[in-house]
Every structure is written in structure tokens, then in C-alpha cells.
Computed example of a mutant assay.
Amino acid sequence: MTSTMTISIERTPLTITREGLAIQVEELSVRLPFARKPADLSEVGGFGNTRILVTETREMTQSDFDSFASNLMKSRDWLRGKGGGTGDGYFCVEVHAPGRPYLYVNPEGGDYARYVARLG
């Protein structure tokens, strides 16, 4: 028998000023550990609890998600120039596909998944 679990994470809309620009984000009610430069999903996890500020969500097919998660160091145009940090938090792209975990990606201005946290 297979069972399903649903997790609800509260999101708080915020406007954060960074370098003189107002950025609309959603702060997650949980903090997660980030892995630095993980090669694939097996290396995501770690220590610490970092504040997550979601700047955008990218929905993927299961196939696209699996391809992304199996090669996190690969250059991707849709990550270029995004991410960064503020105080105790990271600006993240939320990545999700049906039946897969949520990933929070901070490319730190680059074009690959430099810092990654996982939920689920």
C-alpha cells in the first residue's frame, strides 16, 4: 500500500530592497540546509539553516526535473544572473515537478545550481 503525505509551508510576501532595487519575494516559513556546488541530488543536504526568499518558481516535467537534478553543475540560461544573498538568507529559484521534491536554487549570479536546498 502506498500512502501520500502533504506538507504545507507558509509563505510570506515581502519586498526587499537590494542595491537600490525593490525585489518581490516569498519567504518560506522553514529554513533549510544548502549544499555548495552539488553534482546531483544525492549531494544536496548539509548543515545550517538558511532563510529562503523565493524570487520565482520554475515548474518542470518529471523528465526535465530528473535531467536537471542529475547534473546540477550544468550551465543553464534560465539561472543566469539570479540568486544572491541578504543577511541570513538566499534569493532562490524554486524548482518543482509533480512527484519530485522542491529544490531551492541560488546560482549566486552564475548560470548553474551553485547552492541547492531540498524540501521533500
Score class of each variant (00 low, 15 high):
Val93Lys: 01
Glu56Leu: 01
Ser8Pro: 13
Val95Ser: 05
Ala35Trp: 06
Val105His: 07
Thr4His: 11
Val116Asp: 05
Leu14His: 15
Pro13Gly: 14
Glu10Val: 14
Gly110Phe: 09
Arg58Asp: 13
Thr61Gly: 08
Met5Pro: 05
Gly99His: 11
Thr12Asn: 13
Ser75Phe: 11
Gly110Asp: 15
Leu28Lys: 06
Tyr104Leu: 03
Arg51Thr: 00
Pro13Arg: 14
Ser63Ile: 00
Lys82Ala: 08
Pro33Asn: 08
Gln24Ser: 15
Thr55Arg: 04
Val95Met: 13
Ser63Thr: 05
Asn71Tyr: 01
Lys37Pro: 00
Glu19Lys: 07
Leu79His: 05
Asp40Thr: 02
Thr4Glu: 15
Leu119Val: 07
Ala22Glu: 15
Tyr112Asp: 06
Gly83Ile: 02
Glu108Asp: 12
Leu79Tyr: 04
Thr6Ser: 15
Glu10Phe: 00
Thr4Lys: 12
Ile52Leu: 02
Thr12Pro: 04
Arg58Cys: 12
Gly109Leu: 08
Val116Cys: 01
Ile52Gln: 03
Ala97His: 04
Thr4Ser: 14
Glu108Ser: 10
Leu119Arg: 03
Val93Gln: 06
Val25Thr: 13
Met73Ile: 10
Glu94Tyr: 04
Thr6Asn: 15
Asp77Gln: 09
Gly109Trp: 05
Ser67Leu: 14
Tyr102Phe: 10
Ala69Ser: 15
Glu27Asp: 10
Met1Ile: 10
Gly20His: 03
